[in-house]
Design a protein around this nucleic acid. Structure first.
Lengths: 239, 239
DNA sequence: CGGCTTCCTTGATATGGATCAACCTGACCG
DNA sequence: CGGTCAGGTTGATCCATATCAAGGAAGCCG
């Protein structure tokens, strides 16, 4: 790598232009790269435990990470789902008030806590970017509060499918040529969907069946969803 | 006001040391003060409507502001409650994805959008402070997602009372000499509590009665709450 | 191959909270 | 002073979702 090109690892990175790295120039990217380390996490493994002082920050390169909270008696709620190119880690605090767990196999580009914080102090543009991302997460969390507090089971499941359908279109990893059509893979089990939607897994299953019967979706495999008419699903999602 | 003292308005401000202003030095405070304007908003009045381009940012000096979202058919959810010295307004975006409404009479110290953004660009410490506040709001939103998705009506109401009881102790506007005792005024109607907790007002009312019968709280007036044993209430709150 | 296990579906039943309805209280006002 | 209205409580009933229970399908492994 020459002094005037970007690091190899970054050059071929699939999320480079959408991750926080996009806020860095070549030199800054080079110093970020110096502290970066790839890491693979298998589905089901905990990335950072609730209230445990985290040791690292990370970009999600591939896979899905769920942020969960649990009550004393074991009731659980997913309070955030993170997809590539989202950033993991709470700046300015020792520990996250939730557990981060791999929902699928996950590929991370991680940064040791202390070193990352040093970089952050050096490049104000990076903090600005993190701030902006955090505001978007807050908006998403509030949208989800509306869903959890006021939507019916049917609307909750339809809303979740809309979320994934829109992601699929945006990312372009699926057909988006026809604006009203979508197709994607469900990255969560029925149990995880239930934990995200504040339902039981049986109710999620029943609503999936109901959406299929109504023709709003079709399921090739349990996890392969086709939405023939986005508008129809949007209507069922309640907003 | 001399060149070396802080502005009069700020000098006597009750929230100065806890609001975002605390991140400013005297000179910076002076330029913030130049663009500041006091504003009174009556209970029930809308401060900024959903998706309408906001015209101002503001510190809450007194009173309570509710952030609400509504579904097409009128179902409503409060997605955030803001108390003094919280800051109102979404930076880096034209409009908030929610309505901000005065839950009680509210006193604001407001700043015109353009001017505030100029100040923000000039003083990086201010943006850092807003970032930090936003992270705390995100944590609170996620805590509330757990409540909305997984807690029972009883636990929801008890949790809300805990929230206010803790605020009352921290602010010191009430007896905190005995750590297990609290007393405060409910700033919300039963209907607003219901919208915050994802319940109906009848259910809130019944749970309040139930908590009173159980001796977990006592009510002088409908809105005057005494918590004789914080631990008892905490237990009923479910975590 | 048989026997796990994980994920999912479907059925029967129970129940917490919603809904519908009546009424109480205090504040405000002509 | 009576009327109205906003806020709150309480009762009766209903229903959406939870809970309990059984079984199917696919993958894995001895």
């Amino acid at each position: 790598m020459s002094a005037h090109s970007i690091p190899d690892r970054c050059e071929h990175c699939t999320i480079r232009h959408r991750a926080i790295c996009a806020a860095l120039n070549k030199d800054e990217l080079t110093s970020m790269n110096r502290i970066a380390r790839q890491r693979l996490v298998n589905a089901g493994q905990v990335i950072s435990a609730d209230s445990e002082p985290g040791i690292a920050f990370a970009n999600i390169v591939s896979g899905v990470v769920k942020l969960t909270k649990m009550l004393a008696d074991g009731r659980q709620q997913i309070v955030g789902l993170q997809f590539p190119p989202d950033f993991l880690g709470r700046t300015f605090m020792d520990a996250n008030p939730f557990t981060a767990e791999a929902a699928t196999d996950v590929e991370l580009c991680s940064f040791p806590k202390k070193e990352f914080e040093a970089v952050l102090r050096r490049y104000p543009g990076l903090e600005h970017r993190l701030f902006s991302d955090t505001l978007n997460e807050l908006d998403a969390a509030r949208e989800w509060m509306l869903l959890l507090g006021r939507k019916t089971a049917q609307e909750k499941v339809a809303s979740f499918l809309m979320l994934l359908a829109n992601r699929a279109s945006n990312v372009g990893c699926s057909h988006s040529d026809e604006l009203h059509f979508a197709q994607f893979h469900l990255p969560l089990t029925r149990a995880d969907m239930a934990d995200y939607l504040g339902l039981t897994l049986e109710t999620v299953s029943r609503q999936m069946t109901r959406l299929r019967s109504a023709g709003a979706i079709s399921l090739a495999e349990n996890r392969e969803v086709v939405v023939p008419e986005m508008d129809r699903l949007r209507e069922l999602a309640g907003d």
